[in-house]
């Protein structure tokens, strides 16, 4: 079970600034545990952001992104009250979406 993302989306002029904190272990598959066994890879591979259903961000991620990733981006064409939805998919096939209204 994944934890909710923390998302903030604020309109500033014609741009919307989005800040996201994701809860994820982002295991690279290169690390060994205390007993010397390889910790299996488990990381986010895809992040998609939409605004009222329109795609405003699509990113391919890999194992070099840190644990509990922080991401911020800006896009044009959003306004107060719009619904910004972020979805990530990881190597285990798990998916998580969270939504916030632009403030």
């Amino acid at each position: 079970m994944s934890d909710p993302m923390r998302i903030r989306a604020v309109a500033n002029g014609d741009k919307v600034e989005v800040k996201i904190l994701m809860s994820h272990v982002m295991e690279t598959g290169q690390r060994k545990d205390a007993d010397g066994a390889v910790v299996p890879a488990h990381y986010i591979v895809k992040v998609v952001g939409t605004c009222n259903g329109r795609e405003v961000l699509s990113a391919d991620w890999g194992p070099s992104v840190s644990k509990n990733p922080y991401l911020s981006f800006r896009f044009k064409g959003g306004a107060k009250g719009d619904k910004v939805k972020i979805t990530w998919t990881d190597t285990a096939g798990e998916q998580r979406s969270d939504e916030v209204s632009v403030g």
Binding site: L57, A59, S64, S66, L71, F73, R74
Partner: peptide, 19 residues
């Protein structure tokens, strides 16, 4: 993904991952 965003994303990842 526009270039400016890509640069910003890269910056974010670099800063959070390998700094």
């Amino acid at each position: 993904m526009n270039t400016r965003f890509a640069a910003r994303l890269l910056y974010t990842m670099l800063a959070s991952g390998t700094l």
